[in-house]
Write a protein that binds this DNA or RNA. Structure first.
Lengths: 341, 341
DNA sequence: CTGAAAGCGCTTACAG
DNA sequence: CTGAAAGCGCTTACAG
């Protein structure tokens, strides 16, 4: 059943059927009702690919994530999808599994006009390549970013958030503070390390090189292994800021397996504020990112770009919060980076 | 840049360019090389939507999940996506957020020919509707299913797995065994309850009605609340089989918050064997589903259906395993439903 | 308010 | 092995 069949049955032209579907206000009520009746009667479904082909719009966007199994991204994706649906867009999900090649592959969907725009939740491509691409196609970055990149980006200030997390430990009296790093080939890993260093320096605390555990991926296991190394030191740290909650939970497991207590022997701060952070024992103190909002914001900016609206700002910095729970032994209150606006 | 431009530059017809791209063996090596050179030189990208329109194939399938934030589904999705990519298909993800209406909405993608097939990881539609739909479009169910449905389905045997989980508690000497149910409007919730009842009955154990906690969703919070109700009973159970790991972790939290010990005061078994099951304290004994394999299998069957191959079986039952950890106090070994084949 | 006609960029049956 | 031509099912500028 195609549009011309419906047209025949309703004694109108295909053009009129098309208008009833896409611009009903252009058609008289009488004609419109007649056409709609036929459409309902035969349960006509327009061939959307034909429409996409004709209009050069797919009403579909691609969201590329580095790891679909991460609890962090699923929240961001919800924000993206809700906004997309409200605006009449569908979302295709691309999982790179942390591979730059796969990230590159997904760009073909743009080049081949299979999607109207792309949301990158991972940004490991070269800056120049990405900028060049963004001149021709609607692209928005979120969560991850590239320094000085001239492409709209939605994220939190990872450096200051990491500084805040580290300072929380310092303020509780810890002087031997360590950092379990994220991947150093990802900017978030470098930023959070930098924030850690800044906090230590501004409080005149030395950073023992062995207190910085690099290497490994973002997994539970990696957090476990790196914490084991810290515990094996002659003078282990008393406080540890961990790259993210997933690794922090691995680190907690290492501490407990070693017969030590959290926070009495080792205090731990995480990052991302996953749901699990308030399930593990003791509940994990963590930096919260407004995951859902980041998704929403990134999607709305992408739609603006698709509609060729001018974007004034290129960098959208969202608020983070330190959720203080029991893993550092601090009292229970919420500190925030919020500037009241 | 379109195909006819490339054709002109290479002094061939558009048909030849098309053949070079889709059926290179039909073109002489000389012509082929000439065309490929032009393609590379101008970096030509075919307009895929035009191809989809022309061939009536989108090479895209839709995977519908009830909850994208669930750690369980992301593993299944990986299995789906890896198989899809290997076979030249893309995957669109549809998140219903447990709403039947949203599940219904995604069916439009099929009706409108936007996807070649659909993988349902949730199945809350009416049986008749789904069967009717499956007559006209390639559809495969996975994880969830509908009793007696004549549509290919990949899952584990939830009833026997639930029985096995419950029997594990019984064999450890528990007589007051309770079940924290999943949602009763989902077949998995009903099946696991049934398995629980079967185990109790076949060991001549009474099931106190108050030991069956129904109601609530599949969340951590719901697991917490239902366990609190069990603990408030005059004679609380000593062992609890919980619908899934997420709820089980909520239930564990309730036990600990009440000052009781796991497994000494309350033993707990979960379901799904999430990664977090071996992170929480104590590590959670749980039924493992072969998530990745389920995804792989479901996707290969779907591709067979798309290719109009005959499917002999309609029901594909995968093996589950009981992973015994510390939350029941049993010793550490793996029991399996595996029939050596 | 409505219709006739062109055309989006490919693929493929047909002819040579 | 290659080309000319038709056609996939819509939308939209144009004319009336």
């Amino acid at each position: 059943m195609k549009m011309s069949d419906v047209a025949k049955m309703a004694n109108v032209s295909p053009a009129t059927v098309s208008r009833v579907l896409s611009n009903p206000e252009l058609v008289s009520k009488k004609t419109r009702d007649k056409v709609l009746e036929v459409i309902n009667q035969v349960n006509y479904q327009p061939h959307i690919v034909a429409r996409q082909f004709r209009t050069k719009e797919t009403k579909t966007i691609l969201a590329v994530v580095p790891d679909i199994t991460s609890a962090f991204f699923s929240e961001v994706l919800r924000g993206i999808e809700h906004t997309a649906i409200r605006e009449g867009y569908q979302v295709i999900l691309g999982d790179t599994e942390n591979s730059v090649e796969r990230e590159n592959d997904y760009i073909n969907l743009l080049l081949q006009k299979q999607v109207d725009g792309m949301l990158l939740l991972t940004a490991r491509l070269e800056k120049e390549k990405l900028e060049e691409l963004a001149e021709h196609f609607p692209i928005v970055l979120a969560c991850e970013y590239i320094d000085g990149l001239n492409v709209p980006t939605v994220s939190i200030d990872n450096i200051s958030a990491a500084r805040k997390a580290t300072e929380h430990l310092i303020k509780l009296g810890h002087e031997r503070v360590a950092h379990i790093c994220g991947p150093m080939n990802v900017i978030l890993g470098r930023d959070r390390l930098r924030g850690f260093r800044q906090a230590m320096m501004s409080h005149d605390l030395d950073v023992d090189p062995s207190y910085i555990q690099e290497g490994g991926n973002e997994s539970l296991e990696s957090g476990y292994n790196q914490m084991m190394k810290l515990l094996a030191l002659e003078t282990p740290p008393t406080g540890v800021f961990v790259y993210n909650d997933e690794m922090a939970m691995g680190a907690m497991k290492a501490v407990k397996n070693s017969g030590l207590r959290i926070p009495e022997d080792i205090a731990i701060v995480g990052f991302d504020n996953l749901k699990m952070a308030s399930v593990v024992e003791p509940h994990l103190t963590s930096i919260d990112q407004p995951k859902y909002k980041i998704g929403q914001k990134a999607m709305s900016i992408l739609i603006q770009k698709i509609n060729k609206e001018k974007i004034t700002k290129q960098s959208f910095v969202m608020k983070d919060h330190l959720f203080i729970r029991q893993s550092c032994g601090g009292q229970s209150f919420v500190s925030s980076s919020e500037q009241k606006t």
